[in-house]
Design a protein around this nucleic acid. Structure first.
Lengths: 208, 208
DNA sequence: CCTTGTCCATCATCTGCTTGATGGATAGTC
DNA sequence: GACTATCCATCAAGCAGATGATGGACAAGG
């Protein structure tokens, strides 16, 4: 029985809660929490705490934990524009590829947290049908970006003549997906592996 | 207050519980459960149910959930003898490598469940220091198995002259670690990717 | 009688979610 | 301008179910 109500409802903090903005805040906190503790360790209470709001308020914005998780997934996947907007003058395939690899590797070093969450997502997708479809679509887009480059490189002689573009795309995407699972890998080691991957695609006759 | 005790304690079932044997049974059930639902979905109650024993009995054998998980980890890691006992006459490096890749791929297709659990382990290792050390040791053993083969292949001309053995080993192990994260990958696609990986290591002058 | 293995019942805690209430802001009406 | 209604965002408190763990008892075998 609430006999006394000592604390007054906090007036909406300025800069904090304009609905969508507040929701974004919550999603961001949830992402950080997932990066810290994994999906296993995601507690709505702690998300609320990190944002500095009451659990009920969180549930006001996200009716269920699942809704929150869905928002997190959408946010992360939405950020997954790994396919850069078409360069005006795309470089030759081999350089295009190298640029892409180093770009993603850069992202990995700079925004490791997001890769951790993404990793959690992929892990979850093994058992979650809906999530699997979402990520699979994103994977398809990624592959569809890579395959033409690989094919062009093979056809113009920069890459191996016997290159299987789809298989090579699988190797490339798999390389990034596995990054977090190389437990002792240094950034330098990762770059060396990426370079090795590139050399494996190269035509050996092509001077580099 | 237990006023009546209607049910009689079941006499120990024969063939069931000789200590170590019972423990192994529990660990196996836990592994299946983890494969089904992930670590996130591991409940000691359900493990007990699957084994057909009471929760208290499970806690008799494993004083805590953590102890059970530790046993599961040890069991899986102990099974991680990916390095076959030295063949009497090891084949030439290139064939040795190809054999290894196809062997692991075979294991993946046949014992996918164990790979799922292993995947959970790697995911966990990102945050769990102790587990990370264990898996890292296993990774090191794997790399130490691959690197000499790669080096020998490079030196005898079967593999590329500019091959970086350590980086290549990272690619190979990473390929397997990423398998479950290729959400739409068919067994055939996996084999094609493995072959592409091998071709990338090959010296192109060497007839195959 | 001691050890091993088992069970039933229960506990304490965690966790997702709900309830009922509060105050600020905004808009319409007098 | 003052009053009223309504909406939005928030909170304190609490519930119900799940979950890891414990206590105490019992049987069987040595």
């Amino acid at each position: 029985m609430p006999t006394s109500r000592t604390s007054v409802p906090v007036p909406r903090e300025r800069g904090a809660g304009s609905g969508a903005q507040r929701r974004q805040e919550i999603v961001a906190a949830a992402q950080r929490l997932i990066a810290d503790k994994g999906f296993e360790g995601l507690r709505v209470r702690e998300v609320a705490d990190r944002v500095g709001i009451n659990i009920a308020t969180l549930h006001y914005h996200f009716p269920s934990k699942e809704a929150l998780v869905t928002a997190v997934v959408q946010d992360i996947v939405g950020r997954l524009d790994r396919v850069p907007a078409g360069d005006v003058q795309p470089p030759p395939p081999r350089e295009h590829l190298a640029g892409h690899l180093h770009h993603v590797l850069d992202q990995f070093e700079r925004h490791r947290e997001q890769f951790v969450v993404l990793n959690e997502l992929y892990n979850r997708a093994i058992r979650d049908e809906a999530l699997r479809r979402v990520l699979q679509a994103s994977d398809t887009a990624w592959t569809d970006y890579l395959v033409p480059i690989l094919r062009a490189g093979r056809d113009n002689g920069q890459l191996r003549a016997d290159l299987d573009p789809v298989a090579a795309a699988t190797l490339i995407t798999g390389f990034f997906k596995s990054l977090l699972f190389h437990l002792g890998l240094t950034p330098q080691g990762a770059r060396q592996a990426a370079d090795e991957l590139l050399r494996g695609l190269d035509s050996q006759e092509t001077p580099r």
